[in-house]
Measured scan of single mutants.
Amino acid sequence: TETYETTDETEARKIAEELKRRGLTFRIERHGTTIRIESD
């Protein structure tokens, strides 16, 4: 499991693209301005 936290929408998108490219599944949670991406 890898966890990323960012407040930057663009960075979050880049992380999501990278995880997809590596064939990982992940979920995105939003907590206020923080975007949390957690891979399975």
Score class of each variant (00 low, 15 high):
28 I>H: 01
5 E>H: 07
40 D>R: 12
39 S>P: 07
13 R>F: 11
32 G>N: 04
16 A>S: 07
21 R>W: 04
14 K>P: 00
7 T>Y: 06
7 T>V: 07
21 R>F: 06
21 R>E: 05
36 R>V: 08
31 H>K: 09
38 E>L: 15
27 R>F: 10
26 F>V: 13
31 H>V: 13
10 T>L: 12
19 L>N: 01
25 T>W: 12
16 A>G: 06
23 G>V: 01
31 H>G: 03
8 D>S: 13
6 T>I: 06
21 R>G: 06
4 Y>S: 00
4 Y>W: 13
11 E>L: 11
16 A>V: 15
24 L>D: 02
19 L>W: 07
9 E>Y: 09
3 T>N: 06
30 R>P: 02
9 E>L: 10
12 A>T: 02
12 A>E: 01
11 E>R: 06
3 T>Y: 14
26 F>K: 03
33 T>K: 12
17 E>A: 13
18 E>L: 09
9 E>D: 06
36 R>C: 06
12 A>R: 01
3 T>M: 11
27 R>K: 11
32 G>Q: 03
27 R>E: 05
37 I>N: 01
38 E>G: 03
14 K>V: 08
40 D>C: 15
2 E>V: 14
37 I>C: 02
23 G>W: 02
17 E>M: 12
28 I>N: 02
13 R>Y: 12
8 D>I: 05
30 R>I: 14
12 A>V: 05
12 A>M: 06
29 E>F: 15
32 G>S: 03
1 T>H: 13
8 D>T: 05
1 T>A: 11
23 G>T: 01
20 K>L: 11
15 I>P: 00
5 E>N: 05
1 T>C: 13
22 R>Y: 03
39 S>K: 06
19 L>G: 01
36 R>N: 02
10 T>F: 11
13 R>V: 09
19 L>R: 00
38 E>Q: 13
39 S>L: 15
22 R>C: 12
37 I>M: 01
34 T>P: 00
30 R>Y: 14
15 I>W: 08
23 G>E: 02
39 S>T: 15
8 D>F: 05
4 Y>N: 00
1 T>Y: 13
23 G>D: 02
24 L>R: 10
32 G>F: 03
29 E>H: 12
12 A>I: 04
5 E>C: 14
37 I>K: 01
35 I>V: 04
22 R>A: 04
23 G>L: 02
34 T>G: 04
34 T>L: 14
24 L>F: 08
32 G>V: 00
15 I>E: 01
19 L>S: 00
33 T>L: 13
20 K>R: 14
16 A>R: 05
18 E>R: 09
26 F>Q: 02
19 L>H: 01
35 I>T: 02
20 K>Q: 09
9 E>T: 05
39 S>Y: 14
40 D>Y: 15
25 T>C: 15
19 L>T: 00
20 K>G: 06
25 T>F: 10
21 R>M: 07
10 T>A: 14
25 T>Q: 10
29 E>W: 14
5 E>W: 14
31 H>E: 09
10 T>W: 12
35 I>D: 01
27 R>C: 15
13 R>N: 09
27 R>V: 09
15 I>V: 05
6 T>N: 01
2 E>N: 10
17 E>S: 10
34 T>I: 14
38 E>S: 14
38 E>I: 15
6 T>Y: 03
15 I>N: 00
14 K>H: 09
6 T>F: 07
37 I>R: 01
15 I>R: 03
33 T>F: 11
35 I>K: 00
5 E>P: 01
39 S>D: 02
17 E>V: 08
36 R>G: 02
39 S>F: 14
32 G>L: 04
1 T>F: 14
11 E>G: 02
7 T>K: 08
32 G>W: 02
38 E>T: 15
9 E>M: 08
26 F>N: 02
9 E>Q: 06
12 A>K: 00
27 R>L: 07
30 R>W: 13
40 D>G: 12
38 E>P: 00
10 T>R: 10
31 H>W: 11
23 G>M: 03
8 D>K: 04
27 R>Q: 06
14 K>I: 10
27 R>S: 07
8 D>E: 05
10 T>G: 12
30 R>V: 13
25 T>K: 13
